[in-house]
């Protein structure tokens, strides 16, 4: 397999409302580090899952890869080309290869444009004037299993599942190599979710796409991703092969997430782990292990001293915990 995307130590910062002086470059500008050093490698044809709670930086890292946020540090190598630091005009040619499916399926479709215009807009932006737009719209709708007469509809006339399919079709328009899908199944019921995931898997097999899927649905991650990373406060706390992480979780946050995934069986024995409190603020990150204020298994050295190291000693399964794997309900 060839490596399609290599992300190394990427950091994305957002300035916090600087005062009057900061507009002249004076005074201290404070910022939050929404993505605080994320590394991952995606092979061609692979699916990578990013899991974590809202505010953990999942969407920000995806948008940084897609060129919608500027990453201040690190490297984003796509097909051997450094994408970080490119200007908008330099990035635009790469948008053919990296396409995004946004979180809100209906909100990401303009209410004023027909589905045909929405689907064929990428060709206009990329200056592909030779395309037969009617035929392209029909082809794309066919690929995602929607009838051709949808071309003349508007976004508000679609159901949630149909809007997602239009989102997939639009992402496919320029034959991308990588699709970034932000919460592709949120709000869908299970059968429509199954259809959408099967569609993505089928398209991936047919077209050899790589995908990054951002989700908090662990059932989705388990079935369709090859590798996964679990994010907390802008960093991975655990990363590796999906089957390996599910079989042998090392970080207590991973454990809590796995336990928060109830089985659809009223007689199932649930061993849920309730995390204490709220996700901490990115402005004041907790000392030492950043998970310690909420960790149900916290011990003395978790709150003071050194942060836990990013342990990569086991191939395909890295983690960041002082006491990896030693978590019992004590």
């Amino acid at each position: 397999m060839t490596t399609l995307l290599e992300v190394k130590d990427v950091k994305v910062r957002f300035a916090l409302g600087g005062g009057f002086l900061s507009s002249f470059g004076l005074g201290a500008t404070s910022y939050i580090e929404a993505v605080a050093g994320v590394s991952m490698t995606i092979e061609q044809g692979e699916t990578y899952g990013i899991v974590g709670e809202s505010g953990s930086g999942k969407t920000t890292i995806a948008r940084a890869i897609g060129g919608l946020h500027h990453a201040q540090e690190g490297s984003i190598l796509f097909n051997g080309t450094e994408l970080r630091g490119l200007r908008e005009s330099e990035f635009r040619p790469h948008r053919k290869d990296i396409s995004m499916m946004f979180q809100d399926p209906i909100g990401s479709l303009s209410p004023r444009l027909t589905i045909k215009s929405l689907l064929t807009e990428p060709y206009k932006i990329q200056g592909m004037k030779d395309r037969d737009l009617d035929a392209e719209a029909k082809r794309l709708l066919g690929m995602v299993g929607l009838p051709a007469d949808f071309a003349s509809r508007f976004a508000y006339q679609l159901s949630g599942g149909q809007a997602r399919r239009v989102g997939v079709a639009r992402a496919l328009a320029l034959d991308p190599k990588l699709i970034l899908a932000d919460e592709p199944t949120a709000g869908l019921d299970v059968s429509v979710q199954g259809e959408l995931l099967n569609l993505l898997a089928g398209l991936q097999d047919k077209l050899g796409l790589s995908m990054i899927i951002i989700t908090h649905n662990l059932n989705v991650v388990r079935h369709i991703t090859d590798r996964m990373g679990i994010m907390y406060l802008g960093r991975f706390v655990e990363e590796g092969r999906t089957d390996e992480i599910f079989a042998n979780p090392q970080h207590p946050y991973t454990l809590a997430l796995l336990a928060a995934n109830p089985e659809p069986d009223p007689d199932a024995q649930l061993a849920r782990i309730e995390l204490k409190g709220e996700p901490p603020s990115l402005i004041q990150r907790p000392s030492a292990c950043e998970f310690h204020p909420r960790c149900p298994f916290v011990r003395d050295n978790c709150s003071v001293g050194d942060a836990p190291i990013w342990d990569t000693s086991v191939a395909d399964h890295a983690h960041r915990c002082h006491w990896p794997g030693q978590h019992s309900a004590a």
């Binding site: 299970v190 059968s191 979710q193 199954g194 259809e195 079935h223 089957d243 089985e263």
Partner: peptide
């Protein structure tokens, strides 16, 4: 419901 399906599959029931 994918929660029911224990074996990893790329072809979920619909």
């Amino acid at each position: 419901d994918p929660g029911h399906i224990k074996e990893k599959t790329r072809n979920l029931p619909t």
